[in-house]
Design a binder for these strands. Structure first.
Length: 209
DNA sequence: TGCCAGGCCGGGT
DNA sequence: ACCCGGCATGGC
């Protein structure tokens, strides 16, 4: 499936350049939000010189919320950025290197205990910022898998995550691009408004029933 | 114009 | 253990 997607769409190149902290901020800001809106918010943080753990920590909540306005649900997300950075300073002295030195499984649990970081955001942080072997599942993953009848409707996040992790080589570049490919194919061929897998979908050979 | 976007939380069953 | 409303901007 990955090869079919890759052949069709090419390498997606998610989260190139940028610091690890920027990637984490992006992971939080993109919750239920279009990426283009997140880019604007990150640009605003950069211009304000606030795109760092200290920068977020030392910015008053209303100011922070205003800077990230374009990402939507900005009052909620401002608190989430604050909570994460506060937690980072309390537990790792504000040092992402120390944070990512923890075993992946342990760190994932710790991240999930930070309010505002759910399973997808935790896995995105681990994979895209920490380059750890954590497969990221999202709404597109669910839609692509169910639309092709590859999993039942009631499949949970962790079940889908395990499905990928237990059936793929644990290669970070593969995890990175496969998730991006699922988003890509989901946007175009598994749209919410369309009831079924749409014509031209490169995953049609994998459709069950 | 309405729908949707790279979710998550908290309160209610 | 699920289910659902709330959060909110910007693009098509």
């Amino acid at each position: 499936m990955y090869q079919a997607l890759r052949d069709r769409f090419g390498h997606q190149g998610w989260w190139p350049g940028g610091s690890r902290f920027e990637t984490i901020v992006g992971a939080i800001l993109t919750q239920n939000t279009n990426w283009s809106n997140v880019e604007k918010a990150i640009g605003a943080l950069q211009r304000a010189d606030k795109l760092s753990p200290k920068g977020i920590r030392d910015t008053p909540l209303p100011t922070l919320a205003d800077l990230i306005r374009s990402s939507g649900t900005f009052n909620v997300k401002a608190k989430r950025l604050k909570r994460f950075t506060d937690w980072l300073f309390e537990n790792y002295d504000g040092d992402l290197g120390r944070m990512f030195a923890r075993p992946v499984g342990e760190l994932r649990k710790e991240l999930l205990a930070v309010r505002g970081i759910g399973p997808e955001t935790a896995d995105a942080i681990l994979l895209y910022a920490g380059e750890k072997p954590a497969f990221v599942v999202d709404a597109y993953t669910y839609r692509v898998l169910t639309r092709h009848a590859l999993v039942p409707e009631e499949t949970s996040y962790d079940e889908m995550k395990s499905l990928f992790e237990e059936n793929l080589p644990q290669e970070i570049p593969l995890y990175n691009d496969f998730h991006a490919q699922l988003v890509r194919v989901g946007k175009e061929f598994c749209r919410k408004s369309a009831p079924r897998c749409e014509a031209g979908c490169p995953l049609q050979p994998y459709l069950r029933r």
